[in-house]
Amino acid sequence: MTAITATNLTKRYGATVAVQDLTFEVLPGRVTGFLGPNGAGKSTTMRMILGLDRPTSGSVKIDGRSYAELRRPLNKIGALLDAKAVHGGRTAHNHLLALAQSNGISAKRVTEVLDIVGLTEVAGRRIGGFSLGMGQRLGIAAAMLGDPEILIFDEPVNGLDPEGILWVRTFMRKLAAEGRTVFVSSHLMSEMAQTADHLIVIGKGQLIADAEVGEFIGLSSQGYVRVGSPQLSQLAPLLGGEAVLHGDHLRVTGVTAAEVGETAARAGLVLHELTFVQPTLEAAYMELTKGSVEYEAVAA
């Protein structure tokens, strides 16, 4: 069963293409990270899933239906798009109550979700005075109102303190463990590395990768063997793979560390260092999104 299915999803604003021909599926029971540099089209895609923006072409379905076709949608899908997008004059309780009532959700559930996110004590306070972290929790409470099977979070940890980040991360893992579909966007690979099971990576509105987190690393950089030796110039031509000089050591790809060691022993060359360097998600992400970053810093 697929929770969210995007098919050839495209969104243009005049001549600017925000999202281009995006096709992917989001499955239940796991956290799917939606990753891409700022301006890659993540939020636009999420807004199209949620029926807020109209695709220029293509379609996106939630369990086979478009968002507009959902009756009392909060019971099916919950979303946190922008935690600051609330009327600051309203109390947390009234904000949630108005949402709950529109979907036939009881006032009792409002109290429950406030409790889940730890905002019970400030339920009667105006949202305008909330900290960023509290606002984020309120947004998550709103998403949880209908106890939905599908949850969408747009950059949920942006601007949070470490404690808040840990809380959101743990919460998302828990939701996925309960069998729910969790679709969460971020521009930070390091964040996704700790939360997501599956990654959908986009750059400049186009799909770059759609893979398990483990698989994702292998898609780009393959890792390398770091070789240190006082006789690098003699050693380099003997190695089978591709060797690149990096400062005072070589980065060798295409051969194992064992093979490098054996080659050096046969030639009677001294090794000071021989390490296999694991590729990181970060490196893989940088590699894949290279050239799809909207504004790149120029090296000084």
Partner: peptide, 18 residues
């Protein structure tokens, strides 16, 4: 317009797509 100013109109439309 208060809902447009704060952006809460989006949350409202999520709850009531009609």
């Amino acid at each position: 317009s208060g809902e447009y100013r704060t952006g809460s109109i989006r949350t409202s439309f999520l709850a009531v797509p009609g």
